[in-house]
Amino acid sequence: MATDAGRPQAARTHPDPWHAATSGRTVMAAVLMIFGGAMAFFEGVAALASDDLFVMTRHYVFEFSLTGWGWVHLILGIVLVAAGCAVLFSGALWARYLGITVAGLGAFANFLWLPYYPLWALVLIAVNIVVIWALCTGAHHEADMT
């Protein structure tokens, strides 16, 4: 039986997706996460600081107090910025998964926030959906490039 122990290994055709180099999609997703997280943070601060800024709808199914929504968006904003920095500086697979999860939670929270500030919520929903798309397709795109 012959073995290949003495011969040098040929380079792998596909890189390990756990440590794929970051591409433009991943960098774009990280920057959008930092931007969206900052917007969510300021949305939370505005909700905590002033109740007169937002429209109060009656008989909304997902009705929380404005202070409760403020804390939700404040915490989500901080976590989005942290996840965006992790994706930007490490590009690791765990950071991408964290980014996808947090961006999904951000899109869901902004969907529930629609009656309070519709335009801002729609912009953040769109940003979070683009982030999820870029993080989901970025690893496959990077693996095919090398």
Rank of each mutant, 00 (worst) to 15 (best):
A83Q: 05
W69Y: 15
G70A: 11
F62Q: 05
V127G: 02
G36D: 11
L53Q: 05
S65V: 01
A82H: 00
E43H: 08
F41Y: 09
C85T: 06
G6V: 00
V102M: 05
A143F: 07
L32R: 03
Y97M: 12
S90E: 11
V27N: 13
P118W: 01
A95Q: 02
G138A: 15
L119R: 09
R58P: 11
N110K: 02
V61Q: 12
I75L: 15
E63I: 00
I78A: 08
T26S: 12
T67S: 10
G6R: 03
V27Y: 08
A38V: 15
L112A: 01
A95H: 08
A103H: 10
A2P: 06
P15V: 02
H73I: 11
I132T: 07
H140S: 15
G36W: 00
T101F: 13
G6S: 04
Y60A: 09
E63G: 01
V130N: 03
G106W: 00
V130P: 00
S50C: 08
F35N: 04
A107Q: 02
A38H: 04
L135S: 01
R58A: 13
E142C: 03
L119N: 06
P15R: 09
A38N: 07
I34S: 09
V61H: 07
A30R: 07
A92R: 15
A30V: 10
L122K: 05
T13D: 13
R25Q: 11
Y60T: 13
R25E: 07
A92D: 15
H19N: 12
A30M: 09
C136T: 14
G6D: 02
V87L: 14
L76E: 11
T13P: 04
F111V: 07
Y97F: 15
A95I: 03
A49E: 10
F111W: 04
I125N: 07
I125S: 13
F89Q: 04
L135K: 04
P115R: 00
A109V: 09
A21H: 13
A21V: 06
D51F: 12
A86D: 12
M145L: 12
A38C: 15
A83E: 05
T137M: 08
S90R: 12
M145T: 09
